[in-house]
Amino acid sequence: MTCTLGEVKNRADFIVYWGGNPAECHPRHFTKYTLMQKSKFLPRGRKDRTMILVDIRETKSGGAADIFLQIRPGKDFEVLTILRAILKGQHVNSSIVAETGLTLEQMTDFIDRAKKARFGCMFFGMGLSMTRGKHMNSAALLTLAAELNAFTKFVAMPMRGHGNVTGADVIMRWQTGFPFGITFNRGYPRYNPGEFSTVDVLVRGDTDAALILGADPGATMPQPAIDHLARIPTIVLDPKVTHTSRLARVHITTSVAGISAPGTAYRMDEIPLPLKPALKSPYPTDEEVVRRINEAVARKPHWMPADGPMTIMQH
């Protein structure tokens, strides 16, 4: 259940930010897309909208919220599951509810407001998706949004991190069927997050080379993953020196997408925006480097046996 940001701008009278701090991380989000905009359907703009912020601590975004719900760290999944139970009029164990940092009244009020909204939208950030429970926390929020559609229009959308993460996700999907966590070792895409996702592969030391594009895992990944990158031949394509480029065997300097390299960036709602470069760069684009690596690899003997099947039926 999702929508484009314009739908939120034009229609959303009930907006929830969960585990994200848009005031600091997505500074133009409130003014451009969500809270402050007036529209045909919400002529009074901010006054026509209710905003609830859910987080483990007060952030700058709190000032913009009508209601701030402070939950205990690591209790997102429990809170979301309780909300689902309340939505269905089910019993919840009130003695355990207290552990979440919220009261049953606060959560019932949340559901009442959500049901009364004409168009609700929940944004969720890394505070939800990267804390204990990870993908299940996101799943809990998405399920709640889906179930609210029995009462009113309701959508949910992740607040993605920096860079063109969404673009990578979108293109991997159309080319391979899967967004990430893919292996091509058998000549066709297979998917299993946790097994084939980059961080897990590196932590287990399951790879003997690495090509890093548009990311700085040396700054963000756990130490065993970084240690492995330093052990194996690592190639980094990046316009600047990064933690990863420092530990890599090879660093190829590339031009900056959007400033000196053209292309497409996908916004968090998967709307593609053209990148129109303003400057010229002496450095090649990422695309050109990858294309030339590909051409060089193609001149080597192909690694798949020539007499193998062209298609296989998986099972």
Partner: peptide, 8 residues
């Protein structure tokens, strides 16, 4: 530890 959505 039990989820709050379990009833004794």
């Amino acid at each position: 530890p039990l989820m709050p959505t379990f009833a004794s």
